[in-house]
Computed example of a mutant assay.
Amino acid sequence: MPVTLKSAREIELMRAAGRIAATVLDELRAVARPGVTTGELDALACERIRELGGRPAFLGYRGYPACICTSVNEQVLHGIPGKRVLRDGDLLSLDVGVEYRGLYVDAAVSFVVGSPNSLAQRLVAAAEGAFRAALAVAYPGRRLSDLGAAIEAYVRAQGFSVITGYSGHGVGLDLHEEPSVPNTGPAGRGIRLRPGMTLAVEPMLSAGGPETVVADDGWTVSTRDGSLTAHYEHTIWIGSEGPVILTAR
């Protein structure tokens, strides 16, 4: 499947979808306290995405049963919301996809629920820092793997691991499009970035090893060694002057 370059009109629709995603993530973060269940967060997300004019892009996607992903502690991504009660000090990753008038965006954030936790907070900060490192090289003419090399170098410098087997992706006309956006190097490989490309860039980090396992539910991905993880994601547009975050909070 070829990489699709988005028109100015499509970028504006993605901006609108991005505002919905950003608003919902902010609202979820505000109510994610000890004692709240992940299912309650999902119910709020479903309601608010629709109230704001969007459609929950994850719901029903390849059979996924919820509007958002809620991954806790050792869970890397695709955690299914349900009866799990958040506890003080949990590291929670929230991932949301929004479709608005036929255009899609994808975004995620990780944070500590309740009381601060030094390791978890460092991991969360490293996930965002890794995204920023990729953003700094996401300019027209650069190679796709330059983003992954920047992510990997940043993560390793913080003393953490990059989760293996998962990557970012193109997004826009569909929730997942070409190309795959790596989280590791080496630099100088892959297609060149071009104005009009829209990418979901999403570093996934582990405080321990990089290997993962998939739960019996067929969705939830966790670290094999049970170590903490963090996930940070934005949808970006490669503009002629450089990258623009479409899901900025």
Rank of each mutant, 00 (worst) to 15 (best):
Q121C: 00
I163F: 05
Y232C: 04
I151P: 02
V96D: 14
Y232E: 08
V36S: 12
V244E: 15
G82C: 09
S167T: 11
V72K: 05
D42S: 08
T70N: 03
E12G: 04
E99D: 06
I49H: 11
G170L: 01
P34Q: 13
Y139P: 01
H231Y: 15
A120Y: 13
V76R: 01
A134P: 03
E128I: 00
G60W: 04
G185V: 01
V76Y: 03
G63T: 03
L28R: 10
R29I: 09
V72N: 10
P65R: 01
G114N: 15
T220C: 10
Y166P: 00
D174S: 13
S167E: 09
R29D: 07
A8P: 01
R192E: 14
L52V: 04
V3R: 02
D90M: 01
G172H: 05
G190E: 08
L175Y: 11
E74N: 07
G170P: 02
S180C: 06
L44N: 07
D174F: 08
G63F: 03
A45C: 03
A153Q: 13
Y232L: 02
V76A: 00
Y100F: 13
I11D: 01
P210S: 10
G102V: 04
L193V: 09
G208V: 05
L41C: 10
V109A: 08
I238A: 06
D225C: 09
I163E: 04
S118P: 03
I49D: 14
K83H: 06
A107Y: 05
A215S: 12
D26W: 00
Q158E: 14
A230H: 12
T198K: 02
L13I: 10
G239V: 13
A230Q: 11
G79E: 11
V214I: 13
G218D: 03
G170E: 03
A45L: 04
D42A: 06
L77P: 00
H78A: 15
H78G: 12
L86C: 05
G218T: 00
A187I: 02
A127C: 07
G242N: 11
A150S: 08
R19A: 13
M197P: 10
D95R: 02
E47Y: 04
H234V: 04
V98S: 04
G218H: 00
Q75H: 07
P182C: 07
R249Q: 12
F131E: 02
S222V: 07
M197E: 14
L52N: 05
I80D: 11
G114A: 15
A120N: 13
Q121P: 00
L91M: 08
L52M: 05
F160T: 08
M204Y: 15
A125P: 06
D42N: 15
A127L: 05
T247N: 10
D42C: 05
D146H: 09
T247P: 10
